[in-house]
Write a protein that binds this DNA or RNA. Sequence first.
DNA 1: ATCCTCCCCTAC
DNA 2: TAAGGTAGGGGAGGAT
Length: 939
Amino acid sequence: MSDPYDAIQFGQVQNVLQASQERPQLFKGISIYVNGYAPQSELRRHILEHGGDYQQHLKKSSVTHILATTLTNAKIESLRNYKVVDPSWVTDSIAAGRLLPWTHYRLGFSKGPEDQSTMEQNEPVKETEQGEKRKREEEERETVIESVSPVQINTIISQKDKNNKSLDEDHDTHPDIIKNYYKNSRLHHLSAWKEELKDKVRRWNLENAGFKGRNKKGKRPENHRVVMHIDFDAFFASVSLLDRPHLKDRPVAVAHSKGAKDDSSSEIASCNYIARQFGIHNGMMMSTAKIKCPELQSVPYEFEKYKAVSDTFYQIIFEYADEIQAVSVDEALLEVASHVTQPGTGQEMDLATQIRDKIRSKTGCNTSVGVGPNILIARLANRRAKPNGQYICGLDQIQDLLSSIEVTDLPGVGRAMKSKLYEMGVRIVKDLALVPLSNLQANFGTKIGQTLHNFSKGIDDRLLSTHPTRQSVSAEVNWGIRFENEEKAKTFIDDLAKEVSERLDSQQMKGRSITLKIMRRKLGSGAPLKYLGYGDCDTFSRSTVLPRATDDNQVIAKNAWNLYKQLNFTPSDVRGVGIQIQKLEAASVSDKTQFFGAVPLNTEPVASRSLGKTKNDENTTVYKRKMVDRDVFIQLPESTRLEISDAYKVVFMEKEGTSSAVNTPTWSENRPECIGGSSTAAMGHSETSELYVSPVPDNDILDQPSFSDLPPWSQLDPTMLLALSTEMQQQILKQYGQIHEHHDKKLKINHRDFETENKFQKESRNRTTAGGTTKNTLTQMFSRNYYEDEDAPLDMSAVNELPADIREEILENERRKKNRQKNTSRSDVKKKHTPADVETRPSFCEPKLMGLTDIRDIRVLLKTWERTPENIRLLTEFVMKLAHNKDLDKARLVVLSLDQVSNVAAQGTDPQSWRAEVEELRLALKEHVFNHYRCNLRF
DNA sequence: ATCCTCCCCTAC
DNA sequence: TAAGGTAGGGGAGGAT
Ligand SMILES: Nc1ccn([C@H]2C[C@H](O)[C@@H](COP(=O)(O)OP(=O)(O)OP(=O)(O)O)O2)c(=O)n1
Ligand SMILES: [Mg+2]
Ligand SMILES: [Mg+2]
């Protein structure tokens, strides 16, 4: 029972036992992998029901048999060492009630090997693997050819030896693969728990609203904050050690790997402090950790226990806190000023002791506590206190606290920012405090720059989060994704859509925006460092906005699939998939949405989505709303309905029967709306409600006015409109507006077209500032005429008319050209410099200094401007804003003006010259320019 | 100005 | 074997 490995899958074992009672365990001890196209779900169920082991991955030793119907020659070759049999072996054996000899079902004999290098790696050759592993380093940067295994998380289910898979027998095959994955994913649990805890705190806030206001805040009139940060020591590890006291004094880590092998690529979720002495830390790979400490003991996850301890923890802090911010399952921020009448007299200390003791007595676990006047200091204090300690940081200790830490210890400074700061020569917080704000903002952006600046001085204005209602619900899987073909990808996206849909449901939410996120391996990326991991990838996302909020899995799936097709990736390159829903509404609200007559509802913004790579542009759809009465639709002949479904995206709108079919008893059936893809099979729209949304599947629509079939505004029945809710009326009116605007839209190239095709862009992004897409030309910034660049850009509307492949080539060329000659000419493909652009420009938020924009006025101002900290700040912001707006000339002039002023002042009255600021700004500008345009500003 | 999309980043 | 999820801050650039 306490065997580490079993404990992980305790629940599964139980289920297996149940299943075992009924069926003969024909396949006991047999481990089966099912190849590609075989009927997965059936087979899997059969195998599992009869005691077999269904392997998810075809990887070396554990698999004993492979089921396959067809195999390429190369594959047969690569599987030579396995027992490859026809699936009928399983069904026949079951029918026979005994295990039939596999040799009778042997599949294929190897013919001459056709070179398929990707498959060779599947050969169960241990040495290669070991050799590769040794070369691996922390950063996934190797050139070893990736061993593409025929493994797909969505195709194959696996479990380990003994334990069969616990299947939800009722369910059909796929969804539970995802469920099973999440069940074992610590990060998923972490995220899910956090949402639960936020909910819990929200509820607590509501219940205690009156009480808190009276009691606590009244007590301490001044705004002296006392923030307490509580965090369990080595949380998972501590909890897992509760039942394993014998391991307490040994280095221990929580991980999936059993630790039999030392080359496991599983990640350490949490390790105890003994292990940390070896340099081991959370998130480290087990293999790495084992090198540092071969005696490291791994213990299994016990998610239920973690959650139970966490619940106890939160119960306790509810007793003490004025306010709470749920940070994590093992961690929270508290406002506790009401407990401190005399700051700095030890009350904080006592409170911390009391709370920690209570937690220890109720959970058996150690926590550490940091207390400070703001969140930042509380966190840093906690860090200093760890493990099993507490540190109260008063104003006097702040400098000391800060001076002892590295920038990396600041919250918000992770991998990327660390490396950037290091490049700037900033390693410790003291270094950071010396960097001018302008410099930080030039490098990290306004907000982050400011935050870093503040943090370096111990300043943190943030209040505890009140946990506002969430803005998105998503589900993603970025592990084990290896799609053999499009169909597999589609199946997976369907399943993921179901998952997201369930999550929406459980939150009573619906959403109008659907985003698909895909990770795709980079062109030259080697094998991922982590087993079945995503390795070196680019990520892409595409989104679509629906006319109406949905939580329906089919709607989500359809849309996600359309987005997937837009990206047009090679399925086998995909390494991760996510679906995110935004623009959320309470489900109860959107349920009220009613059907109404012939009203055009919306045009999806999809028009601008023309994607370079799709063979035709059928994805470039414009949705027109077309209402069809449900009863009419239902009465159409089946064939006609199918026809309609093919040509149009069919949307079924209606009330959610579950909650509010009240007003429309006729609509007994309720599946909410769904949007059918134009090219895919018609949806199984059973009966249900009404209507429609028609996509017009080609881009002709973009060229000729095409909303002719929409009822003109004048013909809209005002009675009907009036009958609707105000909300609904507004929506309709808005949609009308959109549609008409749409007439004027021109087909436009979109920068995303390039992202789809190229990856160097990302590199350049990584090199420069975060987040940007391709930078505009650089040099134009210095030649005085940045506006008018003569270099005629591509006529994209013309290019867009070309066949996709040719277009692609042209664009590719264009990009290369741009990249090569980045210093001489411009070829900003993304942006057409129409005259309109030039004209519009001035209206684009012209930065002001004390209300002034003209450089002459500013020059005058500067001559007499006082050098106060506030003015310094304003000036800095002004200059950087100018730079930001690419008004480098002006930025430079301002600084030069300042320089003059300071020179004049220096020889005369004012010893307080602006000289330092001049220098700072000069450098910040150069920095900005270099970061943005990769070239040097002569200044 | 402000919004929107598509990223990147961070934390646990 | 292994289970690299996810919400939210924020930035760049474009559209409006
Ligand atoms: N990369 C990580 C980081 C954390 N966690 C999980 C396991 C941790 O136990 C828990 C809490 O995270 P902490 O950052 O609080 O780390 P610990 O509690 O393990 O250690 P400590 O807080 O003492 O530093 O979250 C994880 O699975 N993977
Ligand atoms: Mg902790
Ligand atoms: Mg924590």
